[in-house]
Amino acid sequence: MPGTQAHHPDHFDLIVVGAGIVGLAHAYTAAQRGLKVCVVERDAACIGASIRNFGFITITGQAPGDTWRRAMHSRDVWQRIAPYAGIDIVHRNLWLAAYRPEAHDVLEAFMRTPMGEACELLDAADAQAKAPALNLSDACSVLYSPHELRVESRTAIGLLARWLAEAHGVTFRFGEAVLEVETPRVRTSRGTLHAERVAVCTNTDLHGLFADRIAAHELTLCCLQMLRVKPEAGFQLPGSVMMDLSLVRYEGYSTLPEAAALRARLQQEEAASLEHGIHLIVVQSADGSLVVGDSHHYGDAPEPFAMEEVDQLILRHLRSTLNLEAARVTERWTGVYPSSKTTPCVIDAPDDATRVVIVTSGSGASTGFGIAHDVFEKW
């Protein structure tokens, strides 16, 4: 029963290991169900993939089925809780420009799927009138989606944690490593905690808790490069922006038969970008700066060193997609997340009272609340 451990300071209904967005989504979902929750995080604050991304809650183009459904659920949760947690929704919508006829064909095919509902396929002239920040002089068409929203991930994660503590009574223990989980006992670097259930959401830590079970899923790590760019004063995006390269990466587009011709053309014209896993995403922060990326390099221990060649490719796509007069880079960083060739999310059950949850597609912000909802529905 929820609340059975209310009078024991070190006893909880649920312990969550990891304070990234997936861990916080589980803490929120449990608190909504009346459970007494503790989140244990080895770092003094969340500094991993959850704060190093776009803060872009991506719906359109997600893989059909569970991933798309989870993204829609997560978007609704973000929209509902953001005002209470003090999280600004910086902008909404997605504008995806197709510059090649083959890209236009993919967008037409996407519009015929159930996921195209409420989206619009605009001709270039119409889109240019509505979104003057885009450079559409050579574009064939633009997909407009009303579904997306964007938060500033750098601050949103901390604000979400604070709100969970203040409004929902979630206990946070930062700077405390979990050494062993044998539910109901959780041994940490500072002592022993107890909980009826434990959710392990440790992101890139593939060789720690439940390493043997994680290894069975054959995960690797993906390293990406990101930039913050200062445009000219007054420059305003109409929403999040993407282009052709995304259509061969996001499964909602890339698995359509029409994507094969686009992929073949891009292989001829943008081989270097494909080699580095580059596809352009641009979002805007409240201060007017643009968060721009990204690239994808895979390995068991990706190096933390950014490549200038990759940054220059990303910036070339930025300049060709937007009507920018200035594009000064003010920050550069890398991020790392777990990756799988077969599944966007691992939900593993070492026993009836324990779950290991790892998002393996870089979509934690977009799908985390939906995943947590599914975990508790079946737990």
Rank of each mutant, 00 (worst) to 15 (best):
E196N: 08
Y253G: 06
L247I: 09
R187Q: 10
R197Y: 10
L219T: 04
V170H: 03
P238D: 11
V200W: 02
L209N: 00
R162C: 10
S240R: 05
L206N: 03
G234S: 04
L206A: 00
E180D: 14
E218H: 14
H207P: 01
A233K: 14
P238A: 12
E176T: 09
A199W: 03
L237D: 09
H168N: 13
A177F: 02
C223T: 14
H217F: 13
T202H: 02
R197N: 12
E251G: 07
D212E: 15
Q225G: 11
S189I: 10
G208C: 04
A233E: 14
M226G: 03
A216D: 11
S246N: 12
L227Q: 11
T183A: 13
F172T: 02
L160H: 01
L164P: 02
A216C: 08
V241K: 08
T192E: 14
T183K: 01
C222M: 11
L193M: 00
V170Q: 00
L227E: 04
L179G: 05
E251A: 15
T192I: 14
F172P: 07
A199D: 08
L227C: 09
V200T: 06
T204L: 07
W163Q: 01
E182N: 15
V248N: 09
T204A: 10
L159R: 15
F210T: 06
L160A: 02
V248C: 10
A215K: 07
V229I: 13
F235K: 03
A211T: 11
C201T: 08
R190M: 14
Y253E: 08
H207D: 13
R197T: 10
A161Q: 04
G208P: 01
F210I: 09
L164I: 03
C201Q: 01
G234Y: 00
A233D: 13
S189R: 04
L159Q: 14
C222W: 00
R190C: 12
V200H: 02
F172E: 09
S189D: 07
A195F: 00
M243V: 12
L219G: 05
P231Y: 13
R197G: 04
C201F: 04
S240M: 15
L206S: 03
A215T: 03
L221G: 05
